[in-house]
Nucleic acid binder design. Sequence first.
DNA 1: CACCTGACATAAT
DNA 2: AATTATGCCAGGT
Length: 111
Amino acid sequence: MEIERPPTAFENKVFDALHLIPRGMVTTYGILGNYISCRSAQAIGQALRRNPFTPGTPCHRVVKGDLTIGGFAGERDGEPIRRKRNLMESEGVRFLANGSIDPKCCYRFDE
DNA sequence: CACCTGACATAAT
DNA sequence: AATTATGCCAGGT
């Protein structure tokens, strides 16, 4: 069984920002990246993907820049995605008829 | 809508 | 230690 690699400083930053997102809200990789001073949203997505083992990490509150669901657990579609959507809806995030998320639910880390 | 480029961190070689 | 390849993107053409 493979040993767990300790979280890096970068991942720590990502998780910390994740916890700042209020319930019923979501944020985008771009906004999150701007908050942690990372211009690469991809690096963020990777960090989240590597740590979904933490139930306390609301990785489902992060969506793509165009307010679409994006991916989850390394999957761009399938059951993981519908679970992510279900989680967000359960927390109060509203989805538009076209499948995107309501911009009002987009948390922008009001500074 | 499809494709390419840019920017960033981690794993693997 | 350096390079290559990959990855829950973003932005532009």
